[in-house]
Design a binder for these strands. Structure first.
Lengths: 204, 204
DNA sequence: TGTTCTATTGAACAAATGTTCGGGGTGTAT
DNA sequence: ATACACCCCGAACATTTGTTCAATAGAACA
């Protein structure tokens, strides 16, 4: 890509950022100090041929630069590390966690701050952020957030012949039976756990 | 906002997602099953007056819906839940975790998959994703990822008069001394822990 | 020098596009 | 009832905009 082509692409990107839509050919001409629309069209055609720009012919302001950023990939996951190789070497990367994609699909979900040690044996500790996906029912053995007689709690759901129980994951706590006259409600499913430790990343 | 207006806004969003640019007034008319461009223009003017849509008059395809998603806020954090109130009521929301912002600042960071139980007492279990922020030095008492003689391990860093030790968080394991003739390297700081549990959100 | 290729220009054209105007319809609140 | 907001139509208009084409300028090269 030539110097001029990069400048053109940058101009389109900047314009789009400022205005929310693509520039017209004549606007590009003015912005780039060119006097003829056909000049710009020729340049655009070249960029499109190179595959760095999409364009619908005959459609006004239909420029869409093909972003070369790969930020959609997410954060790399390192599984095993081959001895001697740099950590971020490609052979170490097992995949990516598309946190952004997760955010998009997190409709209605929220984080709950864990309070006590009742789920300690599942590695869920006070101060942890537990992502809850709201739902009305929950299957046996799953962890979820529940409201029992007004109290909100995170437990394992268990349904037996003898009724519903909320199981802690800690010897020091007893299973909680859900009685007939209790007000009981499933708030949502436990989907993910987030724990923040370092100062620099304290969000709140 | 009326039902129709919401549909219109959604149409514009969908169109933009599919094509990378806004629809023209006549394309909207066709897509919404309306036969006159003036009808559409009137609707657009109303949306603009309501402040949910930006538009440059006289400029083709210059629609840019003002996103009502608060995704920049992040995912809400529910701290305490007042008895009887719906979970997502505003009074329950303590703040937001700006996961997106975190992503932006995660330059060079990556996830490491935890292998053994050596950090069990810190609530770090096998299968957890540990976010590592690369750095060359690490302060006393912090958890980090290290490479010792080719092996990568997650431990608490401890520096004493007697030398450097890597401390596990589990009675069954012994502190690991770092000797003079070991090859030792700090990979990065432990910043955050992510644990995925439910099927629907298994990323990989 | 002449040749060839590419980039640029200016003008003209045709299509796409936003806009305006007059008309009508429906429902809701005053 | 009256007013008002919303929705719809069809036609015409002015502008914006992409496109084409012949001509020119400049660089690279034999």
């Amino acid at each position: 890509m030539t110097n001029k082509q990069e400048r053109l692409l940058q101009f389109i990107l900047d314009f789009h950022k400022d205005n929310g839509y693509s520039p017209s050919i004549r606007e590009i001409a003015k912005g780039m100090g060119v006097s003829s629309p056909s000049t710009v069209k020729a340049m655009l055609d070249r960029l499109e041929a190179q595959g760095v720009l999409n364009k619908s012919s005959g459609v006004a302001r239909s420029l869409s630069p093909i972003s070369q950023e790969q930020e959609d990939l997410g954060i790399p996951v390192i599984g095993r590390i081959v001895a001697g190789t740099p950590v971020m070497a490609e052979e170490n990367i097992e995949g990516y966690i598309p946190v952004k994609e997760f955010l998009k699909n997190s409709n209605g979900g929220f984080f709950l701050i864990v309070d006590g040690y009742s789920m300690k044996d599942k590695g869920i500790l006070p101060g942890d952020y537990v992502f809850i996906q709201p739902c009305k029912e929950i299957s046996n053995g799953q962890i979820g957030a529940f409201r029992l007689n007004g109290e909100v709690t995170l437990k394992t759901f268990k349904k037996t012949n003898e009724g519903i129980f909320l199981l802690p994951a800690n010897e020091d706590f007893e299973p909680i039976p859900v009685n007939e006259d209790d007000t009981f409600e499933v708030i949502g499913r436990y989907v993910m756990l987030l724990r923040l430790r370092e100062q620099g990343y304290k969000f709140m």
